[in-house]
Amino acid sequence: MANKLVVSLSPHVHSGDSVQKNMYWVCIALVPALLCSFISFGVGAIITTAISVASCVCFEWAINKFMLKNPKCTICDGSAILTGLLLAFNMPSNIQPWIIIVGALFAIGVVKMTFGGLGCNLFNPALAGRAFLLISFPVGMTTWPTPGQGFGVYLDAETGATPLAWMKVMFKNAPDTELYQKAVQELSKIKWEDMIFGNTGGCLGEVCTAALILGLAILLAKKVITWHIPVSILVTVFVLSGLMYIANPQSYANPLAELMSGGLLLGAIFMATDYVTSPMSKNGQLVYGVAIGFLTVIIRAYGAYPEGMSFAILIMNAFVPLINNKFKPKRFGEVPVKK
């Protein structure tokens, strides 16, 4: 016979979607936030991101080759690059390089590769890396540069408190204290446009609301994620902190300010939606999102740290297998009659 026949089971066509495409689209969706960060914090933002990405990729390559002895190279799938980007986005731009490298080793080496690499990890590697660093190096991780010091600043950047830290002060102190007055004064200096365009202190990738929303639009348009997780988180935070604000406006921040401050948007759009560590069904994703929103508000208000997003996501990561077991998609035949 002249022709060789290829035989396989159906389906014989494929959508053309791939792991790489999804990972690279998330990376592309992060680029606007990175650019804004460069404008706010200068070259330090770029250096920190580069170190983080490079060390994540190197660690994955080395562990895969020398420890797992896997002949297939896994760094081309883009997941290590993405972890590197997200890890950097969760750090101040003036952090010491060696701290970044330790964080990358923990994220890739401990959280991702020990569980079996891509698809097998229980926790989001970048967030677990951040949490590890926050606990191990609390000073370095919570000394944020103030924005607008020029493009050349890196380790020498001047630092200051973030809006979220002032909100915490407001909550912890009675209205008649000096600290409370100072917090109100500092917060009143921050204008809405500062929060929208990233002109506030904070982690490298979290400050620019507009860029993060643009990233969300890219992810939704390219069908990398669905709306369920980000929207359920944001709505929960808005409603819950709104209720608290109505009950006691002196101690709690405006719910819109809550939404736009800290790592909430970065977490809701890019971290909680991580494929591997989020639930599979739509209902499960909604439950997961609502729980993250709830935990975030609780931690922000009553926890030891001003920021609650990363811990909320990590806690819910641990519940994902249970959620997957409990919340199934609606089967065909269980949907009620239309009309």
Binding site: H14, V276, S278, E334
Partner: peptide, 24 residues
């Protein structure tokens, strides 16, 4: 004529969303 090379499941849930019978 050829299938693509399989990679690890990344749990993206796209199969769950695509299933017309609501299965996983």
């Amino acid at each position: 004529a050829r299938r693509g090379e399989p990679q690890p499941c990344i749990r993206c849930a796209k199969c769950v969303n695509a299933c017309p019978m609501g299965l996983e």
